[in-house]
Amino acid sequence: MSISSTYTTILETGYRLFAEHGFEKTSMTMIAKEVNISKPALYYHFVSKESIIEVLFDEICKSIGFENFFTIQDYTNDNFEEKLISDGLRIILKQNEDIYYTRIMNQYQALGYRNPTYSRKLIDSLDGFTTGFVALLQHGARIGAIEDTDALVKAQMLTMMIDSMDNFISYGLAYHYEAIWTKAVVTIVRGGTVR
Rank of each mutant, 00 (worst) to 15 (best):
A151H: 14
D163P: 09
I92T: 07
I52V: 11
Y100T: 02
A145S: 07
L42K: 01
Q109Y: 10
S86T: 15
M28I: 06
R114M: 13
L56W: 10
I146F: 02
I52L: 13
T8W: 15
K39Y: 05
P116T: 02
D98K: 08
D87R: 00
F133G: 00
G144S: 04
L84S: 12
T29V: 13
V55K: 12
M160H: 11
Q156H: 13
Y175T: 01
M157D: 10
T13Y: 01
I3L: 13
Y7S: 12
I180E: 12
D127A: 07
P116K: 07
G140D: 02
F18N: 04
I3G: 10
I10Q: 09
R190K: 08
F168K: 11
M30V: 03
Y15A: 03
K154V: 08
G172H: 08
I143S: 00
I37Q: 11
V55H: 07
T71G: 05
S170I: 01
P116A: 02
S170W: 12
F66V: 02
Q95W: 00
N167F: 01
I72A: 00
R103M: 08
L136T: 05
K83E: 05
Y100K: 02
R114N: 05
F129V: 10
F168M: 14
M105S: 04
T159R: 03
T8Y: 15
S164C: 08
T182N: 04
G191S: 04
K154Y: 09
S164K: 06
S63A: 13
Q109M: 08
V47M: 07
E20G: 10
I104D: 03
N167K: 06
R16Q: 12
F129P: 02
N106V: 11
V189K: 06
L126A: 06
H45G: 11
D163R: 04
D127R: 13
E82L: 08
I10K: 10
M30F: 04
H139R: 09
H139K: 10
I31G: 02
M165A: 02
Y101V: 04
I162G: 01
L84F: 06
E178K: 10
L56R: 07
V55F: 15
Q107P: 13
R120I: 02
V55W: 03
H45E: 03
I53V: 11
F66N: 01
